[in-house]
């Protein structure tokens, strides 16, 4: 009997503890409270609605061109029909860019628009000092802003990616193989990472500049620099360093690698290399290849693991760039003096 009473007492204590932990569970952590609010702010903002409409329209435009041209691909001689499904994302007839190109073009804009006024708008509206006077760690606000935007972007990209897949299945009638599906998922993850880089850059600038217009302009300037001027500069440098025609093969290879590495400073380049490799299993190498290497290569498709291995450096670079931006913004926000307005 004693044994039973002990057990029942234990049970009672356990029950009490369970009730308490349930109560604590109901109490949302302040960090999640901020994340919640930020997400709802994003979703309710006109800015986000406009962007989602633009991105949705362009993606379906590119999907349409891909679908109308996919038949030709099948008819081309020498094409093995494996990974036909991935063509939905990469195929273009020249009139309209493919899905991948659209994302690489609009992704930065999305990241910038979700982050450029993260901190300074809060300061201009005079709400920053009020929030900072609440018992929360200072980095909660920054982390929450980042996380909220990331969640919004992730949901949007996964929704878009899966929608495109769904439409593809409906129209061409071929379901994707598990590997194709995984490749698409990885492609979406890399896209999110790429947008996260631009998001972090814009948050960093939103801490640095007090005016939202200035930080928005600075972000767009950085984006324009990388998309337009960076190539010009690399061209100039590479022309200046062009080896003579008599140079040895090794020298030419070194030179090619040098130019390629210069180009890879641009995050967009890293993103493009990563996504094309993931979506086109026919790509075996991203660097220069000698004729012997090409002849010696076994024609065929890379398995997913190998494709990921191939773009691992690109991924690392993107992650590093994102982390650096985040680290810098973290540092300057923690040092920042919060005054009312």
């Amino acid at each position: 009997m004693k044994f039973i009473t002990v057990i029942s007492k234990e049970m009672q204590i356990m029950n009490k503890m369970r009730i308490r932990s349930q109560q604590e569970k109901k109490l949302t952590h302040p960090f999640l409270v901020i994340v919640n609010k930020e997400i709802s702010d994003h979703i309710n903002s006109w800015r986000f609605i406009i962007l989602i409409v633009i991105i949705g329209l362009t993606c379906f435009g590119s999907l349409y061109t891909a679908l109308t041209n996919i038949g030709k691909v099948v008819e081309t001689p020498g094409h093995n029909n494996s990974f036909l499904f991935l063509n939905l994302f990469t195929l273009s007839d020249g009139t309209m860019p493919s899905f991948v190109v659209f994302i690489s073009f609009l992704g930065p804009l999305l990241g910038i628009s979700l982050g450029f006024d993260a901190i300074n708008s809060e300061q201009n509206r005079g709400t920053l000092s009020r929030i900072m006077a609440q018992p929360i760690h200072r980095d909660y606000l920054l982390n929450a802003k980042f996380l909220a935007a990331l969640v919004v972007i992730s949901i949007m990209f996964f929704a878009l990616g899966f929608l495109v897949m769904g439409f593809g299945i409906l129209t061409i009638g071929i379901p994707p193989t598990p590997e194709e599906f995984l490749r698409v998922v990885f492609f979406i993850l890399v896209s999110i990472l790429y947008v996260a880089f631009w998001l972090n850059l814009s948050i960093l600038l939103s801490i640095q500049f007090r005016q939202t217009a200035t930080s928005a302009l600075a972000c767009i300037a950085a984006w324009l620099f990388f998309t337009v001027f960076f190539h010009l500069i690399v061209n100039l440098i590479s022309k200046a360093n062009m080896p003579a025609e008599t140079a040895s093969a090794q020298q030419i290879i070194d030179y090619q690698k040098f130019v390629l590495n210069l180009l890879r400073i641009e995050p967009g380049r890293l993103y493009n290399e990563a996504t094309t490799t993931l979506l086109m299993p026919t790509i075996h190498s991203l660097g220069p290849l000698s004729m012997e290497q090409i002849h010696g290569a076994i024609p065929g498709l890379l398995p997913l693991g190998q494709s990921i291995m191939l773009v691992w450096p690109q991924l690392t670079g993107l992650i590093a760039a994102t982390t650096i931006c985040f680290g810098l913004s973290y540092f300057s926000f923690m040092k920042k003096e919060i005054r009312s307005r």
Partner: peptide, 20 residues
């Protein structure tokens, strides 16, 4: 500061709220 902010209420100069 966190412990202090738990028990101190602060009304900033020209206090603002989230407008929406």
């Amino acid at each position: 500061p966190i412990e202090v902010k738990k028990i101190v209420g602060y009304l900033p100069e020209d206090v603002r709220f989230y407008d929406d």
